[in-house]
């Protein structure tokens, strides 16, 4: 249980910070594509008998760069690039898991999350990824803000917008790795979008939005964990259901209050 609380705390940091960029840049679908494509890395990890999270890191990074380069530099529509990587990554995962000898007992935990079974080694990896993500965001904070707010003006200002976009996609890929143990590949997109979308309602700037998103993320994880224990259901699904319910209530509340 202690590991689960630590996992929730550490995952909520990356989730709130990177999720904020995902929401303000409206790239939720790309994040979903990276998460699903990363399943290939889990399959490769199983096949070679290594920690699937270690297979996940290079695979999600390559998927992020592939989607980013194809949509920015290649003459491929963004949703086409996402669709191709999304399905191909899943297919690679299925093929390698099929080829791997024996049975993959904790496959479900990567697909749908299993915060209660996070080992110490994964906690260390998640903490390391958090530090890396926060460091890169701190270094490029103003550049990320400028490109998120007005990409064309940022380019005119001499900022290398494509390079920064690829760096951001790589940070999303690393956040996917962080969140996989908590809610699983299938539901990562919800944690990257719902807490920041709620936080935006009462945030005056991007920094407060990041902090509020992280706190909301932590709240959803801990409350979802408790509810899953109470009702004896899967924790990942309960976390997402709780987040989605709060999102719908806040959206309805805003509408009732006349704010769009």
């Amino acid at each position: 249980m202690q590991h689960a609380v630590w996992a929730a705390f550490l995952a909520s940091i990356a989730c709130g910070v990177i999720g904020t960029y995902v929401v303000v840049r409206k790239i939720g679908f790309i994040s979903g594509g990276i998460a699903h494509a990363a399943f290939g890395g889990i399959g490769v990890g199983y096949y070679f008998g290594i920690n699937p999270l270690l297979g996940l890191i290079p695979f999600s990074l390559l998927s992020a760069l592939g989607i980013g380069l194809l949509s920015k530099k290649g003459k491929v529509a963004e949703d086409t690039a996402i669709g191709a990587f999304w399905a191909a990554g899943m297919a690679v995962g299925v093929v390698f898991i099929g080829l791997a000898p024996g049975y993959a007992p904790d496959l479900f935990s990567y697909l749908f999350g299993s915060i209660l079974t996070v080992p110490s080694s994964d906690l260390l990896m998640i903490a390391g990824l958090d530090v890396l993500i926060l460091l890169v965001v701190a270094l490029f904070f103003n550049e990320f803000l400028a490109t998120s707010f007005d990409e064309e003006y940022a380019e005119v200002s001499g900022i290398r917008t494509t390079m920064l976009y690829l760096v951001l996609l790589c940070l999303i890929a690393l956040t996917v790795v962080v969140l996989v143990r908590v809610v699983g590949i299938v539901m990562v997109i919800a944690l990257l979008t719902i807490p920041p979308a709620i936080a935006r309602n009462f945030s005056r700037n991007i920094l407060t939005m990041m902090v509020a998103s992280s706190l909301l993320c932590l709240l959803f994880m801990l409350a979802g964990l408790w509810l899953s224990y109470l009702f004896n259901v899967a924790s990942g699904a309960m976390i997402i259901l709780l987040a989605a319910a709060v999102f719908m209530i806040t959206a309805a509340g805003r509408r009732l209050l006349g704010r769009t």
């Binding site: 303000v24 003006y153 940022a154 935006r200 991007i206």
Partner: peptide, 15 residues
Amino acid sequence: FPISVGDAVLMGRLS
């Protein structure tokens, strides 16, 4: 976008 007028104008200094 969650940003104030002052912070948006500040971006003009990035160049």
